[in-house]
Computed example of a mutant assay.
Amino acid sequence: NLKQGELLFLNQHIEHEIAACATEDIIINFIIQPQFFDFIFSFLTTENRISNFLINSLYNSTQNGQFLYFKVSEVKSIQALIKKIIIEIMSSAFMSDSTVKLYMGLLIVELIKHADKAEHTEDYPVQHYLIVESLKYIDENFQKASLYELSSQLNQPHYALSKEIKKATNYTFKELLQEKRLSKAKELLESTNMPITTIIEQVGYDNVSYFYRIFKNKYNQTPKQFREHLAKK
């Protein structure tokens, strides 16, 4: 049974239900969208069960790794972050969405630091290690990332690694890399006045027309139209 201040992470692919609670019990359900973890993976290490659980929960449509149960009622740093998240969500002030995202990132990091306080259902195979490392590699090296370099670093045949990535995520290495590059380009368009051609180079492309095509395909606007739309807000 959950106690006050404890956390339960559930794999998004499992079926579950909540038993009847007492009159004064309060349970807060946070639903975390998979895309939130785009910027979290750079913090994850392969030596902890939390990163393995997240990979399994996000990308494997199985019953493996059903839950993580954190007995963190006495961990002040974690309780303080949860309180801040709840207050920010309830107040819904200026920049609340960004603030909650940053707090949640800090919460994940704190939970990783206190992984010894987590109970889980089972161990994870080597494939999860490969997927964690692959996602971290794309996140950290997206400008010049290549499947061949990654496979060399992981001491895996490139065709076998490619198959594991596709099996776990439903995306190819190239598709994951493109998603990261487009996301970074969108971020630079929103937060800087950098020329579009420079942004294209910054995210790892040298073919301007190709970049315009894939950007418009994803966001339904060209980079120029996207920036002009932002300026009108």
Score class of each variant (00 low, 15 high):
83 K>R: 11
83 K>I: 07
84 K>L: 05
84 K>G: 01
84 K>P: 00
84 K>E: 06
85 I>A: 06
85 I>Q: 01
86 I>Y: 04
86 I>M: 07
86 I>E: 08
87 I>F: 03
87 I>A: 05
87 I>L: 06
87 I>H: 06
88 E>S: 12
89 I>S: 15
89 I>Y: 15
89 I>H: 14
90 M>S: 14
90 M>A: 13
91 S>T: 13
91 S>M: 11
92 S>M: 05
92 S>E: 13
92 S>H: 11
93 A>D: 10
93 A>P: 06
93 A>M: 03
94 F>V: 08
95 M>R: 15
95 M>N: 14
95 M>T: 15
95 M>Y: 15
96 S>A: 14
96 S>N: 09
97 D>M: 09
98 S>K: 15
99 T>M: 05
99 T>I: 11
99 T>W: 07
100 V>F: 00
100 V>G: 01
101 K>A: 11
101 K>F: 06
101 K>Q: 12
102 L>D: 11
102 L>A: 11
102 L>F: 12
103 Y>S: 07
103 Y>L: 07
104 M>P: 02
105 G>C: 08
105 G>A: 02
106 L>V: 08
106 L>W: 06
107 L>Y: 04
107 L>W: 00
107 L>F: 06
108 I>H: 00
108 I>Q: 00
108 I>C: 04
109 V>F: 00
109 V>S: 04
109 V>W: 02
110 E>S: 09
110 E>W: 01
111 L>D: 01
111 L>W: 00
112 I>E: 01
112 I>W: 00
113 K>L: 02
113 K>R: 13
114 H>S: 07
115 A>T: 14
115 A>M: 11
115 A>Q: 13
117 K>T: 05
118 A>N: 01
118 A>M: 04
118 A>T: 05
119 E>P: 08
119 E>F: 09
119 E>C: 07
120 H>F: 14
120 H>M: 07
120 H>C: 11
121 T>E: 14
121 T>S: 14
121 T>Y: 10
121 T>N: 12
122 E>S: 12
123 D>N: 09
123 D>A: 05
123 D>Q: 07
123 D>G: 13
123 D>V: 02
124 Y>M: 02
124 Y>T: 02
124 Y>N: 02
124 Y>H: 04
124 Y>L: 02
125 P>C: 10
125 P>W: 04
125 P>G: 14
125 P>L: 04
126 V>T: 05
126 V>A: 05
126 V>W: 08
127 Q>R: 11
127 Q>I: 12
127 Q>M: 06
128 H>I: 01
128 H>R: 10
129 Y>C: 11
130 L>R: 12
130 L>K: 09
131 I>L: 05
131 I>H: 02
131 I>E: 00
131 I>A: 02
132 V>Y: 09
132 V>Q: 13
132 V>A: 11
132 V>C: 12
133 E>V: 03
133 E>K: 15
133 E>Q: 15
133 E>T: 11
134 S>K: 06
134 S>M: 01
134 S>F: 04
134 S>G: 08
135 L>Y: 03
135 L>E: 04
136 K>P: 07
137 Y>C: 03
137 Y>F: 13
137 Y>I: 04
138 I>F: 07
138 I>T: 08
139 D>A: 14
139 D>C: 13
139 D>P: 06
140 E>R: 15
140 E>L: 15
140 E>N: 15
141 N>H: 12
141 N>V: 02
